[in-house]
């Protein structure tokens, strides 16, 4: 039994049954009689019975949003985050431009320049969220796991652009400890260590 049996049974009509529908009222008189009958039989409360009973029993299944939130998949792709290195707090992004290249809706742009130590740094990083389709390619292609998708799906603002600048996406330095590693597309797989071949060193 591999769980596929139910899909292999294509005789879908076996559990069908005919619903008995009483004939529609034809004259206004008949229609009036139906209204009176329905009102006096209190059919409304038949439907409400379950609701009322559950309310009295205090066994509530509703998620109390926004007090309560459902856990979402780690692979959920919400508004992007730019991560920092945990030890030094330096930005992870090296400005290689691969996300800019791979973006299929062409909504990422980076400005880069050499910094005072001669290293390449991104001076500005933007995503046009009006065009972003949240496909996750940028996170997948990123060699440094610097651009990732966040988990935060609640974004309301007056303008989409307000999520799109580098300072909005970058982990603030004081919240470095709260920064979580991204497990979604592009993150190392659990077996990654076994796949690595070591380059020989002469010392």
């Amino acid at each position: 039994m591999n769980g596929l049996e139910q899909f292999k049974d294509r005789n879908v009509s076996q559990n069908y049954y005919r619903v008995k529908i009483e004939p529609y009222p034809k004259t206004p008189w008949e229609r009036f009689k139906r209204v009176v009958r329905r009102s006096l039989r209190l059919e409304l409360f038949v439907g409400l019975k379950i609701t009322l009973m559950e309310m009295l029993r205090f066994k509530i299944h509703t998620i109390q949003y926004p007090k309560e939130k459902l856990p979402i998949s780690p692979r959920y792709r919400a508004v992007h985050k730019l991560l920092r290195l945990l030890e030094s707090g330096n930005e992870r992004c090296i400005g290689c431009g691969l996300c800019e290249k791979i973006c299929i809706s062409n909504c990422i742009r980076i400005d880069t320049r050499p910094d005072e130590n001669g290293r390449k740094i991104p001076t500005e990083y933007t995503i046009n969220f009006g065009r972003c389709i949240f496909c996750g390619y940028c996170a997948e292609v990123c060699p440094e796991l610097a651009i990732v998708h966040g988990q935060d799906y609640e974004h309301a603002s007056e303008q989409r652009a307000q999520f799109a600048l580098k300072e909005d996406m970058l982990t603030p330095l004081d919240k470095l400890k709260e920064q979580k590693e991204y497990p979604g597309f592009g993150a190392p797989t659990p077996a990654a260590d076994k796949l690595i071949k070591k380059t020989p060193l002469a010392y």
Binding site: E100, K101, T112
Partner: peptide, 9 residues
């Protein structure tokens, strides 16, 4: 030119 643009852009 250093670090200002990538060849493919």
């Amino acid at each position: 030119f250093k670090y200002s643009a990538n060849a493919w852009e």
